[in-house]
Amino acid sequence: MLQSPPIPLDPPPVYRGQPIVLVGLMGAGKSTVGRRLAGRLGLPFVDADIEIERAAGMTIADIFSRFGEPYFRDGERRVIQRLIDGRPKVIATGGGAFVNDATRALILSEALAIWLDAPVEVLAERVRRRDTRPLLRGKDPLAVLRELAAVRNPLYALAPIRVPSANAPHDTTVRAIMEVLKR
């Protein structure tokens, strides 16, 4: 028996139509949670990493290897600036996007930032499943994630909303976000 897709809920009262931007370390579930959250809210979903690849005409791994991380971060900033256009949507960012001062300032002033926070051990287990992440090439994911968390978590903490993204189904994280938005 086919089930019809869930009917989007009315936007929660705290939500005022600005873009919702998910931030957090790699493996936090930004893309999957973002897609599902957008469906619940009846909003479009945009994955910033996919938009970066479209704009560059190559994969993020290729951008990193050919031009380096600073070049990638500049392109990432420009793409996110284009995506945050005042229209309601859910945007999943790459793990380093919120670290850039200009990108973070834009997100904090023009969007609703939500930090998907997960323990590095959970993140390491998740990212081990895919070897496409340039910052992990040939390195121990747990060690890299610990280093990144030490630098990035204080910046992610600037997001007005923090939602745990532990070892639970993504729908659990989506429900937690919906609850926070309703308060």
Results as ranks from 00 to 15, higher is better:
Asp49Gly: 12
Val21Phe: 11
Asp74Ala: 05
Asp74Pro: 00
Asp49Trp: 09
Val120Lys: 05
Ile114Pro: 09
Leu37Asn: 02
Arg104Leu: 05
Arg54Val: 04
Asp117Glu: 15
Val21Ser: 14
Pro164Ile: 01
Glu147Ser: 15
Arg54Ile: 02
Pro6Ala: 12
Val151Cys: 06
Ile7Glu: 12
Ala124Asn: 08
Gln81Phe: 07
Leu158Met: 13
Val163Trp: 02
Ala113Thr: 14
Gly17Tyr: 06
Phe72His: 05
Thr93Ala: 04
Gly75Gln: 12
Leu108Ser: 04
Leu155Gly: 06
Phe64Asn: 12
Val79Phe: 02
Ile84His: 14
Arg162Thr: 15
Ala143Asn: 08
Gly95Ser: 05
Leu37Gln: 00
Gly34Leu: 07
Met178Tyr: 00
Lys89Glu: 02
Thr93Phe: 03
Phe45Trp: 03
Pro119Glu: 09
Leu83Asp: 09
Phe67Asp: 15
Leu135Cys: 06
Ala61Gly: 12
Asp131Cys: 10
Ile107Phe: 12
Asn167His: 10
Ser65Lys: 13
Arg40His: 11
Asp62Leu: 04
Asp62Tyr: 01
Val33Tyr: 02
Ala55Gly: 06
Ala168Val: 15
Arg87His: 14
Leu116Arg: 04
Glu121Tyr: 01
Ala159Lys: 04
Ile20Trp: 03
Ile84Gly: 11
Trp115Leu: 12
Gly42Asp: 09
Ala159Met: 07
Gly95Met: 01
Phe64Gly: 13
Pro134Cys: 10
Arg78Val: 02
Arg152Pro: 13
Phe45Thr: 12
Gly57Asp: 01
Val99Thr: 08
Pro13Asp: 01
Ile63Tyr: 11
Leu135Ala: 11
Gly39Met: 12
Gly17Ile: 07
Glu53His: 10
Arg183His: 10
Glu125Trp: 02
Val120Thr: 15
Val163Glu: 08
Ala56Gly: 11
Val14Gln: 15
Ser31Lys: 07
Leu142Gly: 02
Leu112Lys: 08
Gly42Gln: 10
Thr59Phe: 04
Asp101Leu: 07
Pro8Gly: 02
Leu112Asn: 05
Pro160Thr: 09
Arg133Tyr: 13
Ala176His: 01
Val127Ile: 10
Ala113Val: 12
Ala143Met: 09
Leu116Ser: 07
Arg73Asp: 07
Val180Ala: 15
Ala28Leu: 06
Glu76Tyr: 05
Gly39Glu: 14
Pro164Val: 02
Leu145Gly: 07
Pro169Trp: 00
